[in-house]
């Protein structure tokens, strides 16, 4: 989540297109606001909703939900109060300035941590169970102009478990494929054989 949000939305824009990106119009945002308000209403009215949908049997659950609802509202109000207090108690004022980056006056998107770099330590840790493909272009010359690092982590479970199982299934299916001749008479004959077999089994069991 942090990787996705950080890589896409935070910091300096990484491409010309993202630098020119603008927020959508109000009419398109209304649905999101509506869902937000609906979520809040559902949290506040959760006990009533539980009681209405579950009847008297859900009384115990409604009691717990009421407690959680009150607590959720208190938490939200508390966090807003914290933000207000932060502004009230800060006497020094505010200032906007370029990011501090150890001597660089104005860091740009090329100096930022990329999403790949952000997750690399964790990906390294899980390397034995990941199917990784790395592509490194190392910096050359004294004043290097370009260098890059690409990493692709495929789904190891899909590669090593599900695909292998699918291969076994496919092999077995290939072996019995001859049964699917497409001939209706053949299928009726097979059904007859199975029924006959079941009859013999039932007789032997008796």
């Amino acid at each position: 989540m942090v990787k996705a949000a950080g890589g896409v939305f935070l910091g300096e824009p990484r491409t010309k297109e993202s630098a020119e990106a603008r927020e959508v119009t109000k009419s398109m945002r209304v649905s999101m606001y509506f869902l937000f308000v609906l979520s809040l209403v559902m949290v506040i009215l959760a006990p009533c909703i539980v009681r209405f949908t579950g009847g008297e049997t859900a009384a115990g659950l409604a009691k717990l939900t009421a407690k959680l609802s009150v607590f959720s509202v208190i938490c939200t109000v508390f966090l807003f109060v914290m933000l207000l207090l932060q502004n009230l108690f800060c006497k020094g004022g505010k200032r906007v300035s370029p990011t501090w980056d150890c001597g660089y006056a104005r860091p740009d998107a090329r100096m930022e941590y990329t999403a790949t770099a952000f997750t690399q330590p964790l990906a390294d840790f899980f390397a034995p169970v990941l199917k990784r493909a790395k592509k490194i272009r190392k910096p050359e010359k004294i004043f290097a102009e370009e260098a890059s690092y690409e990493e692709k982590n495929d789904d190891a479970g899909l590669e090593y478990i599900w695909k292998k199982l699918a291969q076994v299934g496919s092999f077995l299916a290939g072996k019995i494929h001859f049964l699917q001749s497409g001939n209706l008479h053949g299928y009726i004959f097979m059904v007859l054989l199975v029924l006959g077999g079941m009859l013999v089994y039932a007789m032997l069991k008796k």
Binding site: M1, V2, A5, G6, L10, G11, E12, T99, W100, D101, C102, P107, A109, M111, E112, Y113, A117, F118, T119, Q120, P121, L122, F125
Partner: peptide, 24 residues
């Protein structure tokens, strides 16, 4: 989670590095 997001929002390479380690 909020501290890490805020670190990434500054765009600083050092804060990105710290955030990456914290999450790891």
């Amino acid at each position: 989670f909020l501290t890490v997001l805020a670190a990434l929002e500054t765009g600083s390479s050092f804060e990105g590095m710290g955030a990456s380690r914290e999450v790891q």
